[in-house]
């Protein structure tokens, strides 16, 4: 009886994986395109539509596609959380230095690299934040 029930469980999981294979292969194919699109939107955010937040949300979709495919809790959420805090600190420090230390006036040609860098920081922060939200919801929150 016991062996039979474990067999049944195996069968159930087997069917699940069979139906998920299609999704995982397609998502695997989409991976690089999502990444390139996200980076493009962040990189060109300062003069075309999009920007840090939108690009970051697309990059978050990259992590979340992984969540759909693998469904394993192998992302170290604590590390991601600390990284996000660090990015937030950087997000406050960089404009502080750039604007209040007067670099903006001294080197006007640095303005566009500065905007791109800030967009990049915002994008990373949004991506990590949304990833944490969904991972926490998916794996940790109780019934």
């Amino acid at each position: 009886m016991n062996t039979d029930s474990s067999e049944t469980t195996k069968l159930a999981t087997l069917e699940q994986t069979a139906s998920e294979e299609l999704i995982s292969v397609m998502t695997g194919l989409l991976y690089p395109f999502i990444a390139v699109f996200g980076i493009y939107i962040i990189y060109n955010g300062h003069d075309t539509p999009g920007g840090g937040f939108q690009g970051g949300a697309i990059m978050a979709a990259l992590f979340l596609a992984r969540f759909i495919v693998a469904h394993e809790n192998d992302l170290e959420v604590h590390f991601v959380h600390n990284l996000e805090k660090f990015l937030f600190a950087l997000l406050l420090i960089v404009p502080g230095i750039f604007i209040f230390a007067g670099l903006q006036m001294q080197f006007p040609e640095l303005k566009i690299p500065y905007l791109i860098f800030m967009n990049f920081l915002i994008g990373m922060k949004v991506a990590l934040g949304l990833t944490i939200v969904v991972y926490r919801f998916g794996f940790f929150e109780g019934r």
């Binding site: 939107i41 539509p49 999009g50 920007g51 937040f53 939108q54 949300a57 697309i58 978050a60 979709a61 979340l64 969540f67 759909i68 949304l130 969904v134």
Partner: peptide, 16 residues
């Protein structure tokens, strides 16, 4: 701008 945000959040993340 808003369209991109809506597409990603509304039909991607929220659905998930």
């Amino acid at each position: 701008d808003v369209a991109i945000a809506e597409a990603v959040m509304g039909s991607g993340l929220i659905t998930l």
